[in-house]
């Protein structure tokens, strides 16, 4: 799953614009990634401040 580093994210909206699945929602103060994300990594690569990473889902469940 895609993980958001809240300390880095500037809520600029670039990832929302490129997400082909419309999986990202950007509110005033936070970003949310929905379940239909297919982990295509496009948002991870586009982010100007490296706020997104793909995490091994097994580990993130721990």
């Amino acid at each position: 799953m895609i993980k958001i580093n809240k300390n880095k994210c500037d809520l600029c909206g670039s990832c929302v614009a490129v997400c082909p699945m419309d999986s990202i929602e950007m509110f005033e103060t936070y970003l949310k990634i929905n379940k239909n994300c297919n982990e295509c990594m496009i948002c991870v690569h586009i982010c100007p401040v490296e706020a997104l990473t793909k995490e091994d889902s097994d580990r993130s469940n721990v």
Binding site: C12, V16, A17, V18, C19, D22, M26, H45, C47, P48
Partner: peptide, 26 residues
Amino acid sequence: DGVESRIGRFAGIKTFVKPEDIDVCV
């Protein structure tokens, strides 16, 4: 609603941008 627009998608218009068609800035 800006670069992060979703309203178009609600109306069934394909608005997502290809990575080569967006400049990301600081």
